[in-house]
Simulated assay, not measured.
Amino acid sequence: MLAQRYLQGDTLDSGEMDKLNELVALWQACLQDISWFLRCLNESIARQGNAENKCRGRFWEGRFKSQALLDEQALAACMAYVDLNPVRAKIAKTSEESNFTPIRQRFHAATTGKQPNNLLPILGGERKAMPKGPPFQLDHYLELVDWSGRQLNPQKWGAIDENIPPIL
């Protein structure tokens, strides 16, 4: 109410202004906190999901997880994990057919020779004086994702069928 009164042009006494300043500082701190944001996002999605499924409880087990990617191997593994999510969930048969993933755009780049504007280009080559981008070759990365997607994992639903030709 203090913020609404202030925004309407009402005059606030010094005690009310002090309280409003405290609230503004709290709101600014919250808006800069990823944990607070994800908690709020989780709550609204959980309420909607629980209403649709007629159930109760947490929607996600945890708000978020963070893992440091300390070397090229970890970076490649993380990228491949993201790119293979639709295959593992049986939403797509192959990684290059999966919508809304970088691998589809990278596959298109490999076939047309044009790098996607919204992704860092996979440039490969030596580390010395290398421009910004993942430090491995595009064709090697595409083969890695294709090979990984063909591996059967008992904890995942899907894999790329062995009868489908390789990505390259």
Results as ranks from 00 to 15, higher is better:
D13C: 12
N50D: 04
V145W: 06
A110Y: 11
L2V: 00
D13T: 06
N99A: 15
F136N: 02
D83E: 09
Q4N: 15
M1G: 13
P166K: 11
I34Y: 08
R150W: 01
L75Q: 14
W36K: 09
K65L: 02
L142Q: 00
P116S: 02
M79P: 03
I91H: 04
M79Q: 09
Q67E: 13
Q32L: 07
I164L: 13
P102G: 14
Y141Q: 08
H108M: 15
C78W: 08
T94Y: 10
C55R: 07
L38Q: 10
S44W: 08
V24D: 03
K156H: 10
Y81M: 11
L75S: 05
M130V: 00
W36T: 04
Q67V: 13
P166A: 11
V145E: 05
E96P: 01
N21W: 07
S66C: 15
L138W: 11
L120Q: 01
I91R: 06
C78Q: 13
Q8K: 05
Y6M: 09
A110E: 00
M17R: 05
R88K: 14
K19R: 13
L84K: 03
S14L: 01
L12E: 02
A51W: 12
I34S: 06
L123S: 09
W60D: 14
Q32F: 01
K156T: 10
M130F: 00
W36Y: 09
D10W: 03
L20M: 09
N153K: 06
V82K: 08
A29W: 02
I167C: 14
Q155G: 05
A74W: 04
T94R: 13
V82D: 11
T112Y: 02
D18S: 05
F37Q: 07
M130L: 02
F64N: 00
D33F: 04
S148A: 07
L168R: 07
T101H: 08
R106E: 08
A51K: 12
Q73H: 12
Y141V: 03
R58Y: 11
D13G: 11
D139A: 12
K128M: 07
L41S: 05
A89D: 12
I91M: 07
A51N: 11
P135G: 10
A74H: 07
E96Y: 04
A80R: 04
Y6E: 12
I122V: 14
N153Y: 05
L26V: 09
A51V: 02
P116N: 01
E16H: 01
